[in-house]
Amino acid sequence: MTGHTRTVTVHFDDLDAMGIVHNARYALMLERAITAFWAERGHSITASGPTSTDVINAVREFSITYHRPIRGTGDVNLRFWLEKLGETSAVVGFEFTSPDGDELYADGRRVNVKLDPRTLRPAAWSEEARGIAAGLLRTPEKISH
């Protein structure tokens, strides 16, 4: 399977007044899942600072399409993958689905740019990060809706 799938929990404070996940929470859940993925592989920000310069990056673009609301609390699946890994940027595709994968709630893409920690200008991803990211690269025939 291409990409990475993580179970994320929808909490009461993720819901809006109608009892559905608030639109802004999708970006937060995605951020937490991607952060956990990289932290499990040694790339995080600790009390001592970044464990790698690859964690110094910024979101350049975020796009999401909502297909059906997530109603109430509980678990959903979040799958993310790399559409493209450039010299200084990464295009991440993602989808939120029901735990069984039958219902697509939302999908989209996010573009991150790695930054030099001193200048905050685009910088190249490390070879270590490229190696980890290679496991997230998608092959078009494996992604479908």
Rank of each mutant, 00 (worst) to 15 (best):
T73P: 04
V55D: 03
A58D: 01
K84S: 15
P99L: 06
E141V: 07
S126L: 09
L137V: 13
V8E: 08
S89T: 12
T139L: 13
L15P: 02
F96H: 07
I45L: 03
L115V: 10
F94Q: 02
E61C: 08
H4D: 10
A90F: 04
T88I: 07
A33G: 07
D107R: 15
N23E: 02
E61K: 11
D75E: 15
A124D: 10
S89E: 02
L28C: 10
A47L: 05
I45V: 10
P122M: 05
R6N: 12
T51A: 08
R41M: 12
R130I: 15
K84P: 14
P122E: 09
A27I: 08
R79W: 02
A33D: 08
E87H: 10
R6E: 15
A134I: 04
I56P: 01
S63N: 10
T51S: 09
Y26P: 00
R130Y: 03
E127P: 02
R121Y: 06
G101T: 11
E61Y: 03
T119Y: 04
H11K: 05
I34Y: 02
M1T: 09
L78H: 00
P140D: 13
I20W: 06
E103A: 09
Y26Q: 04
V76L: 02
H4W: 00
E40W: 04
S98Y: 10
N77Y: 00
T9A: 12
S89D: 14
S89Q: 08
V91W: 00
S63M: 12
I64N: 05
D14K: 12
A90V: 13
E40L: 04
F37P: 11
P117H: 07
T88G: 11
E40Q: 03
I34L: 10
S52C: 07
T46S: 14
A39N: 10
L30D: 01
S44H: 13
L115S: 10
E141S: 14
V92C: 13
R121F: 08
R41T: 09
G131M: 10
G72P: 05
A58G: 07
R68F: 06
M29Q: 12
K84H: 12
A24Y: 00
P122L: 05
D16Y: 08
